[in-house]
Design a protein around this nucleic acid. Sequence first.
DNA 1: AACGTGATTTCTGTATTCAGAATATCGGGC
DNA 2: GCCCGATATTCTGAATACAGAAATCACGTT
Lengths: 214, 214
Amino acid sequence: MDQTTTAPLRRDIAEQVTARVLDGRLPAEARINEVRLAAELKVSRTPLREALVELTDRGLLVAEPRRGFRVPPLNLDEARKLYPLVGELESLALRWSAPQDLLGLTDPLERQIDDMRAALDDERGLAELDDRWHAMLLSACGNAHLMRIIAQTKPLLKRYDVLYFGGPERARRSIEEHRDILTAIRDGDLNRAARLLVQNWVNGAAYLGRPAGR
Amino acid sequence: MDQTTTAPLRRDIAEQVTARVLDGRLPAEARINEVRLAAELKVSRTPLREALVELTDRGLLVAEPRRGFRVPPLNLDEARKLYPLVGELESLALRWSAPQDLLGLTDPLERQIDDMRAALDDERGLAELDDRWHAMLLSACGNAHLMRIIAQTKPLLKRYDVLYFGGPERARRSIEEHRDILTAIRDGDLNRAARLLVQNWVNGAAYLGRPAGR
DNA sequence: AACGTGATTTCTGTATTCAGAATATCGGGC
DNA sequence: GCCCGATATTCTGAATACAGAAATCACGTT
């Protein structure tokens, strides 16, 4: 229960800062005032800075030599590159999963798809379910480094995902793509599944230009 | 010229610690004594810790909750997964390069291959040349995040590369593979080039079990 | 003699402090 | 009235200090 004693403080802080970047409390282009942020989070500057260094290394923040940390600008071009990147990374993880382990996942994956169909109008819940579906899909991949890279890359994309969610149209389409991926896995056709998975992410990028909602 | 004033201290430190891990001054399994290491590097603990956090995030070190930082054990299984991972990442970067930019690189790439042929007996120089060749090959890829991931992942692999270098046999083979990749690029066949690039890394892993040297 | 227990010491994790650079402000000159 | 420069303030980057946890070692007990 008492995870606080075992988890370093910087882990918590990194998560909280990530949350603030994703939900806009730390907006794009904003310079980070370390003392103020430390005060808000009720921690001192040292573990905060360790967390900021971590996030900078992952690309969620940028460090300017003598000017501190900043939230990088939102950049459509970057987003259009991030979606395929995550897609290819996940696709790789899928190809490197043991086929028999994947078959064992098909039933829970199918149930999650049903849950998503039932939550079509709840954008936030849908995004959460989508995340979980992908996480479950990749849970059979034994390549720890690849999984770490994926986990560290996805938050970069979430900045754009939140802003440009495509509404029920994209959701419906994405759910159908999930179903196709699942079918390919059941067919034992990992290559097809991997291709469809990339496509699922690439299609997500297609909704980027449009303002949020319907 | 004066880059020292603009580069954060932790950058230097991270590089020095990386070097120590790669050349064995910080051996596998070793716990890191922060005060001693800080003294050796003539810096204080704060920037040192920031560098250690960075390297931990990249997987070059591990952090055990209340016990500090450690150099992770060498693990053949991990190495066998790292080679294909780097291969796939580089392959992706190659596929995402602009073909015309790649064509502009073919001549310098060819010259580097000649240099490598001339340095067949100099293991250290050869490794350096190999690194530069791959760096040049990927210099046309505009996906900054992918390039960052690659740069951060390669050092993990270098731990094994140093230990298990396969000698002139592997070198000769690798050089021929480079030549084939170059040919594929000149043919405008990026897919073949990307496939060969993966294979180049996968073949590197084949030498893993064998002790260093001839 | 071996094992368990407690004190001591070492080391990490976090907080606070200090120095130097960048930026903003205010005053003077044109 | 506007621009330029000196001064003051703010903020980062680095060093030091402190508290708490873990490992080690010695001592006493069985």
